[in-house]
């Protein structure tokens, strides 16, 4: 039986004025994989995620999520999305934020509370659940945002820079959690501008100027570039690409 491609994009092109934020990009992600989308700022990571989620209409190409051609409202209940900005209500408490979004996903209150406590343990905010989000630090707000994105146990989650501004120890526990989710069959597409961080992913895609420079397992990429870490691999691929163009 063929492996299910939970994310499938073909020839995505997205223009902002004359600038191509996505330039004929294709990719596919099988179910239960932790896919790391790495690249520098402005590479097109957020545009790709927003296009895949149906928040931006591509000028060319098509995207399929969970077998549905996007944009499609039917995938929403199975989709988790953590935007790059905090996208939380500063004037509400941590728990009130979680309760509200839980209601939008049709979750029962008791279920929301249980799940919220579980996630707040993960993001280490259990002692702040009654605190107003606006009074938390940037890193903490990002953690609230992550908890909201995973609240409804999505089958597929797009997490845009979930570890930005998060301290190294907590970052490690996040990646552990992402791996655990993938083992449970959840597919995750995680962006990071810290290329080396993508080492923790099953598949890594290097994005540059709206195009995928390469895609593969971290060990394949290291072998392909004859480097010892993903930072060096990315630089090597970037230079190779510049020579070609």
């Amino acid at each position: 039986m063929a492996e299910e491609q939970v994310v499938r994009a073909e020839g995505l092109r997205k223009l902002f004025g004359k600038h191509a934020a996505l330039d004929g990009l294709s990719l596919s992600v099988p179910q239960g994989q932790l896919y790391g989308l790495a690249g520098p700022n402005g590479a097109g990571k957020t545009t790709l995620i927003r296009t895949l989620c149906g928040l931006l209409r591509p000028d060319e190409g098509t995207a399929y999520l969970l077998g549905w051609r996007m944009p499609n409202t039917r995938v929403r209940s199975q989709l988790g999305y953590m935007p790059q900005d905090f996208a939380v209500y500063d004037d509400l408490s941590v728990m009130q934020n979680l309760e509200f979004f839980g209601e939008l996903y049709g979750l029962r209150r008791a279920h929301v509370l249980g799940r919220a406590n579980e996630l707040l343990d993960l993001v280490q905010l259990s002692d702040r659940k009654r605190q107003r989000v606006g009074t938390l630090s940037g890193g903490m707000r990002r953690r609230v945002s992550l908890a909201i994105s995973l609240l409804h146990k999505p089958r597929l989650a797009f997490l845009d820079e979930p570890t930005a501004g998060v301290d190294p120890k907590l970052r490690r526990s996040f990646w552990d959690y992402f791996s655990a989710l993938a083992e449970q069959g959840v597919t995750l597409v995680v962006t990071t501008h810290l290329v080396d961080e993508a080492q923790r992913c099953h598949i890594v895609g290097f994005l540059m100027a709206g195009r995928l420079l390469t895609q593969g397992t971290p060990s394949d990429i290291l072998a392909q570039t004859r480097t010892t870490n993903l930072d060096d691999a990315f630089i090597a691929l970037q230079e190779r690409n510049q020579v070609r163009s």
Partner: peptide, 14 residues
């Protein structure tokens, strides 16, 4: 502008 509307509209609500 705060991004919460996107979050609402990507949830299964019309």
């Amino acid at each position: 502008t705060g991004g919460t509307l996107t979050r609402i509209l990507i949830a299964p609500v019309s």
